[in-house]
Amino acid sequence: MQKGLSGAQNEILTAVVAAAREERGRTGAEGAERVVAEETERRCAERHEGGGPTGHPWR
């Protein structure tokens, strides 16, 4: 939350950064950048798939 993100946004950020770090170790910076773009889009789409409010102000 220190980053000004909700709990769910922070979870997405943390997961994407971890995946990108792993990929960078295997394939370098280009692979990490690809993972960031793909995983961020996928995880955000999953999170907002219903389009409605979450019912919790910090999630």
Rank of each mutant, 00 (worst) to 15 (best):
A32H: 06
G31K: 02
V16C: 03
V35C: 08
K3F: 07
T27P: 01
H56S: 03
V35S: 09
G52V: 13
V36H: 05
E41Q: 14
G4Q: 13
E23Y: 01
Q2P: 03
A15G: 02
R43W: 05
E23I: 00
G28P: 10
M1P: 09
V35Y: 09
G25M: 01
E23N: 08
T54R: 14
E23A: 12
G55C: 04
E46P: 01
C44I: 14
E46D: 15
A19W: 02
A32S: 13
T40N: 08
E38S: 08
V17I: 15
E23V: 05
R42V: 01
G52C: 10
T40G: 01
M1V: 10
E30A: 13
N10H: 04
R24P: 00
G28Q: 09
E46V: 11
H48W: 14
L5V: 03
E41Y: 07
S6M: 12
P57Q: 06
G25K: 01
R42T: 06
L13M: 07
W58H: 13
P57C: 05
R24M: 02
Q2S: 13
H56A: 09
K3Q: 10
A32Q: 10
G51V: 06
A32L: 11
A15I: 03
R21C: 02
E11N: 13
P57Y: 12
A29I: 07
E30K: 04
V17S: 05
G31T: 02
Q2L: 08
G4C: 12
R43V: 04
T54G: 12
E11K: 09
E38F: 03
R59E: 07
P53R: 15
